[in-house]
Structure formats: structure tokens, C-alpha cells
Design a protein around this nucleic acid. Structure first.
Lengths: 210, 210
DNA sequence: ACAGCGACTGCACAGGTGTGTAGCATCCTT
DNA sequence: AAGGATGCTACACACCTGTGCAGTCGCTGT
């Protein structure tokens, strides 16, 4: 148990409550997290949580909204920067999202945050549009469809953060962990799991099966 | 709300409770699921749940163990079958795991099921060993490391089942949904997201950054 | 000076939860 | 036939939770 997570006093109580809530929701899940626990972490009374957010559910929604705002801001900033490449984007996205990783994972699994996912698909679609320019053969599936599954895959390591870290034997939040992960992703992203021929064959088999 | 999920009477009460628990845990999460709700679905008293499994936590562990057994059995069976290819394996795995999808997702996110993940990494490693034979250049990262991240990615669609289905606009559990997903995966698996040159460049940049 | 308002606290309440336990029926063993 | 284990139920208990609410403090505009 780390003792002090919240910033001292430079944030408004409302913001501190929101941050504490994201921490508790992410660490324990929505159900197990308690308003009293959140209030304690934020250094306020439980009544104040209710005063500012109305209900636990509304507090969750405020957290979702905030994260959506953060993600949108990151994406806009990234596209505005002319030096940004796709690899840099992925890397920076990981860095930006690091502190919200656990909350994001919980939110996606527990069903809130549908807007969040949809927004991320939209962002992936933008990138796919760029990548598709270098692609010789046209895809037989919709770009949005590919963006959807691509988004899910991009989120996977974040969703299974602890499992991946444990299996790799490193702390993913450490510099070494981040470097190792980058290497692995570079390798996977640059090596297709199957050849175009095998894929075509499988697709044909799929058509044959009706 | 679908009314009757459990099979009529052909299962022992213990097995019915386990099935009901996997359903409730998967649908509502461990915390929100209640022993009384599980008992009702299984058609028994809440006391019997305790009688057979001792505690809610122990019930969860029994579910994890069962799922681990199912997965091991599937994998052994797949490797024993000489006609099995990698694409078929992925396809059959999806079919086998379909009914446990939601439970698996919850278990992985909520932190139980570490054995499950590790076992899946081991299975991925077996497949990678086969795939590596056709690979011209040796990878600069451990096979187990690649298997770990690959496993996470393979699980991603299952973890984000509802989001992916909603974004694609189809029910993934339907035949059309399954076919669409297969097509998307074939496309993604057969097209690298970046060229070997770009990957080498990014790797060099990573080394330069220390 | 004073009324109003928002930030904030403390406490009580009702509901739901996991768990403990006493007791009943049924079947199997000796 | 006796007796004990086993599957199973019903009920009570203590606890924790989200929520409601009355009230205090401090600021701000008039």
C-alpha cells in the first residue's frame, strides 16, 4: 500500500475527488470501490463526494468524461504536431495513458466507457487511412471494421497489464519494461502471422463453408 | 433478461452451481454477483452453494480451475488432431471459448486466473515455435516474450466483446458476426502494420535513446 | 450589517450481503 | 434395522454500503 497518492493541496477538492475515484475504481473496480474510501484518499468527507457528484454512478460518469477529454486532447495534439509518426504516436499514447491504464481497463470491461472505445476506433481509423496509402492490395473488409479490431488489439496490453508484466518478468511501468514492450511490439507489427497466400486460402475456405 | 439459462436436471447440483456462478460472475462481475442470485439460477438454496464450495472466493477459484481444465483439454485435443492448422486452431478456439468468453474476460481483468493466462502463453509459445520455422530473419526478442504479447492480443477481441460487436454493428455470436470477424483477423494477420525497414529504424531510435 | 449561497461535515437509516448454524430427508454401509 | 454421512433448506446475524439530511463555516454582493 503506497501511502500518499493524491497531490497535496494544489487541486480543487472536486478534482481531487475525481482523481481519487479514478484510482479506486481502477484499482478495485467500481463495485468494490467505496465512496468512503475515495473520500479518505481525497482528504474530504464522504458527504462532499455526494455534494459534488450526486451519486456513485454519476461520479463514474464524470471520470469517464474526464478520461475522454484527456484522450481527445492527446489525439488533437498529436495530429497537430508535424513531426509525429505512427510509431511515435503509439509510444506517446502509451506514456500519456499510463496513469489511467487501470481505470481505462476497468471501465472498458465493466461496460461504461462506450464512448471512449468508439472514439478510439475513430482515431485508429485516421491512422489506417494513412497506412492504407502504402498498401498495394485493397482490403476486402471495411476500414472501420479493421480499425475496430485493431483498436481492441492495441488496448490488449493495457487491459492485461499485470498479466503481461508478470509473464515478461518485468515491471512494465519501468523504463526497461517499456523498452522491452516496444521491441516486442515492433517485432510483432513488422512480421505478419500468416502469408498472403495462406490468408487467401483461408478466406476461400470461409466462402466455401458459406 | 433471458429467463432460463441452466440445463434442466441432467447435471449434478454442484455442476449447476458452478455453471450458474460462471454465468453470474461473467455477466455482473465477481463483486456484483450474489450467492443468492447464483443459487436461484442453479435452482438450489443459497446454503447449498456454501455447502459445496465453502465461500464465494472458493467458488470463484473452482470456476477458474474448471475453465483451466477446459482450455487444457481443448489444446491437447487440437494438437492430437493431425489435420489441425493454425487458422483452424484459432477458429476452433474461438468456438470452444465462446460460452466462457465473459467469465474469462472478467477473471483476467479482476486478477484471478493468473494460471489461466500463463497457460495460454505457453500454448501460444508452441504455435510460435512452429511459425518461427518459416521466418527468414531471427527475432531479437525472446519467443516467450512475443508469445506473451501475442496472447494478450489474441484475447483482446474476447475481452472487448461487446464494444467490438457494437462498433462492427453485428452480433459477434451470430454466424455473420463470426464470419466478419474471421475476415478482419485474416486481413490483419496477413498485413504487417509496418515495414521491416521502419521497424529497424524505430529499433535503432530506441537504442539511441538508451 | 446581513442575507444568501456554496463548500463541507457528521450522523443516522434502510437495504443487501456473505456467512454461520441448526435441522431435515435420503441413501448407503455394516 | 441402525446409524452415520451427505445433500439440502431455512433462518438469523453482523457488517458494510450508498444515500438522505440537518447543520456549520466562510465568502460575496448589496
Amino acid at each position: 500500500m503506497s501511502t500518499s497518492r493524491p497531490d497535496p493541496e494544489d487541486l480543487t477538492a472536486r478534482a481531487r475527488i475525481r482523481d481519487a475515484a479514478m484510482y479506486h475504481f481502477g484499482e478495485h473496480g467500481f463495485e468494490r470501490a467505496t465512496i468512503r474510501g475515495i473520500a479518505t484518499t481525497a482528504g474530504v468527507s464522504s458527504g462532499l463526494v455526494r455534494h459534488h457528484f450526486g451519486s456513485k454512478q454519476a461520479l463514474r460518469e464524470a471520470c469517464d468524461d474526464y478520461l475522454l477529454k484527456v484522450i481527445r486532447q492527446f489525439n488533437d495534439q498529436a495530429w497537430a504536431d508535424p513531426t509525429f509518426s505512427d510509431t511515435r504516436y503509439v509510444y506517446a499514447a502509451r506514456a500519456t495513458m499510463a496513469k489511467y491504464q487501470r481505470y481505462l481497463a476497468r471501465a472498458l470491461i465493466e461496460g461504461s466507457a462506450t464512448e471512449l472505445f468508439d472514439e478510439m476506433v475513430r482515431m485508429s481509423e485516421q491512422w489506417l487511412a494513412v497506412l492504407d496509402k502504402d498498401r498495394p492490395d485493397p482490403s476486402d473488409v471495411d476500414r472501420r471494421a479493421r480499425a475496430t479490431v485493431g483498436t481492441a488489439m492495441a488496448l490488449s496490453v493495457g487491459l492485461l497489464y499485470d498479466h503481461v508484466g508478470r509473464s515478461l518478468g518485468v515491471d512494465l511501468s519501468s523504463p526497461e519494461g517499456d523498452r522491452l514492450l516496444s521491441r516486442i511490439l515492433l517485432d510483432l507489427y513488422s512480421h505478419p502471422l500468416m502469408s498472403l497466400e495462406d490468408a487467401a486460402r483461408a478466406r476461400a475456405a470461409l466462402d466455401r463453408a458459406q
